[in-house]
Design a protein around this nucleic acid. Structure first.
Length: 583
DNA sequence: GTCGGCTCCACCC
DNA sequence: TTCCGACTTATTCGG
DNA sequence: CCGAATAAGTCGGAAGGGTGGAGCCGAC
């Protein structure tokens, strides 16, 4: 039985180490000292989890509740804990450095398995009163912990171990703890096939590397997905791969579908089990897949049969729910665009070349509404691929994914055997001609994220009848000032209102964007600006594109059109980005 | 006692 | 999803 | 030919927008 203090001590060492090889050495020494029946829980704890993605309870417990637990543990007010958290940036450090609550009396030392079991029980609690129950459970665990132990016990529920140790490092350490680095490929392969590093560790320790080598693709167990690398231009794709298969890049949910006789399970890209969310896909698999056992992969999107087009992600994402599934299904049926096959009948297809897998998909699927093989263009010609790409963009898709014709399915890998190429956003803005811009502001009841007094500038997309946020400007005003602004805005209110908006943002008034701009010119130019929606860091910001006059107002000497990304806009115009972290 | 709003959490891209 | 920094590993270059 | 300098690749962490769900709490 290994005391948890040994883990905590090793974690401290790991945290202070930057060299990966040194981390591997520390971690392998720790693992080596563990018993067969401890290594599984220990590996999960190093990962900061309680089990594999597809089979671990969620804590439902993070920053806020941890703060409350710390307050109860230390007997200090919540406000003080919050202050300490802001200065230390980490609940674990607050416990270890600032509070240093000593364990009570002769409390028995915590064992590794004990900590794991306690956290697991905590996570599994649910129902009325469970929030306080979780806090109590955590506090009683902390009362038995040394400050160093407390540091890591707290970090697990908030999901930030901050050890600098990822799966790959754990795998290296496992290899060295039971042999040498040559075991790494066996371990990695087993992990990629079963998605459960704790199971891999236990198997290695109890049955040895041969048992790991015998792992195979198993229907019902999620296989780690293959992902695509990104390139800057299409010529790069041809340069790297030559002749390749080019598929549309759909913006929906990546799904790995396991069919086992009459049973069907659907896993997300993180091996979460989403079967219950997508009954339409389950039915389609049952009727359309001509094999009793199979593992398929594809992208699920809400599909509009009337126009034969796919809905944007914002619509598809509404299918991600656990209640009202039937209604959502009726409103937005899904189609799974199948682009890979990992297993069929009794055959592991992952080692077969891409073209063979694709050919088998065509013979495997019956025609039907729910499942369709994703189209693919085979070409080595950059011009032809560019035209294909433009066709996809015109159809409202995200871009393309090119795949090497002879490559196997590389579970858990991101390599240049798959290459994605996405559009730049201004193309989409230009192409979506029926965009109308509106402005609106969020009044009382807006989400806390925005805060009362946020101004949002949004693009109204008539096609999907939804808004995309372009920019939001925190007013940062006192209440009186805000009421005055609101009064000014009310004068310009117009009646137009979209049918579908975020239910949590119910702006009382809709106004023309130009009026928002006029009314709020001062506030907008002086406030921190954060663009959104079109505003991921590397995409041209809608704010600069749509409201150049405002940006000019900030710095007359700069040309906002020159700035193509949010980051650049922020730099050019001296705008602050939103606070970097909660710390 | 029910219901709706709110906060916090987890996960999709 | 994207970006970025710290490190490691592979490759090139100069004495 | 060898070692240093440089380039390329790996890995982990941090951040953004937006959605639904669970539990809590106060109003009625």
């Amino acid at each position: 039985m290994t005391p948890f203090s040994r883990l905590a001590s090793a974690f401290s060492t790991l945290e202070a180490t930057s060299s990966r090889t040194a981390m591997v050495a520390t971690l392998s020494a720790l693992l080596k000292s563990l018993d067969e029946d401890e290594v599984q829980s220990a590996v999960y704890l190093v990962q900061g989890r309680l089990g594999p993605q597809f089979d671990a309870p969620q804590f439902g417990f993070s920053e806020k509740l941890t703060t409350r637990a710390l307050a109860e543990w230390s007997g200090r007010p919540v406000a003080e804990i919050e202050r300490l958290y802001r200065t230390h940036g980490d609940h674990g450090l607050v416990a270890e450095k600032a509070l240093r609550v000593e364990k009570t009396g002769r409390a028995a030392p915590l064992s590794t398995v004990e900590v794991y079991e306690a956290l697991r029980a905590l996570a599994e609690a649910s129902g009325s009163g469970s929030v306080q129950g979780k806090i109590n459970a955590l506090v009683s665990l902390l009362r038995r912990a040394t400050p160093e132990e407390a540091k890591y016990i707290l970090r697990i529920p908030v999901g930030r171990m901050r050890l600098g140790v990822g799966d790959a490092t754990i795998m290296d350490a496992l290899a060295i703890s039971r042999g040498d680095k040559t075991l790494r490929p066996v371990i990695e392969r087993a992990y990629n096939l079963c998605s459960d590093l704790g199971l891999v560790a236990r198997t290695l320790y109890s049955a040895g590397p041969k048992a790991l080598a015998a792992f195979k693709v198993e229907v019902g167990r999620p296989v780690k997905m293959q992902f695509a690398e990104r390139v800057k231009d299409i010529a790069d794709i041809v340069r790297r791969m030559g002749k390749c298969a080019v598929e549309p890049k759909y913006d929906g949910f990546r799904c790995q579908v396991h069919k086992d006789g009459t049973g069907v399970r659907i896993f997300s890209r993180n091996q979460e089990d989403n079967t219950a969310m997508f009954p339409d896909i389950v039915r389609a698999v049952a009727t359309q897949v001509k094999a009793s056992r199979a593992i398929l992969e594809g992208e699920a999107l809400a599909y509009d049969a009337q126009t034969d087009t796919f809905f944007p992600f914002q619509v598809t994402v509404q299918r991600k729910r656990t209640h009202g599934i039937a209604e959502a299904e009726a409103a937005y049926p899904l189609r799974l665009n199948v682009f890979d096959l990992l297993y069929a009948d009794r055959t592991d297809m992952t080692c077969e070349p891409y073209q063979k897998r694709r050919a088998r998909i065509r013979t495997l699927l019956k025609a039907g509404a729910g499942l369709a093989p994703a189209p693919a263009l085979v070409s080595g010609d950059a011009d032809e691929i560019t035209r294909y790409f433009e066709t996809q963009i015109a159809d409202g898709l995200e871009g393309i994914v090119a795949k090497r014709l002879d490559s196997p399915y590389e579970a858990g890998k991101r390599s240049f055997n798959w290459i994605k190429f996405k559009r730049a956003y201004h193309g989409a803005l230009k192409d979506t001609l029926d965009l109308a811009i509106v402005g609106y502001f969020a009044g009382r009841g807006a989400r806390a994220k925005l805060g009362i007094g946020a101004v949002l500038c949004a693009v109204y997309d008539a096609k999907s009848d939804r808004f995309r946020t372009l920019a939001k400007v925190a007013s940062g005003q006192s209440d009186d000032a805000w009421i005055a602004l609101r009064t000014r805005l009310e004068k310009h209110a117009v009646s137009h209102r979209p049918a579908r908006v975020d239910s949590r943002i119910e702006p009382p008034y809709w106004v023309e964007p130009t009026l928002v701009v006029e009314v709020f010119a001062d506030e907008i130019t002086r406030s921190p600006v954060h663009t959104a929606g079109v505003g991921t860091d590397d995409e041209p910001t809608g704010f600069a594109l749509r409201f150049p006059r405002i940006v000019r107002g900030v710095r007359e000497d700069r040309q906002p059109e020159d700035a193509t990304t949010e980051r650049e806009v922020a730099r050019l115009f001296g705008l602050q980005r939103r606070a970097r972290s909660k710390a």
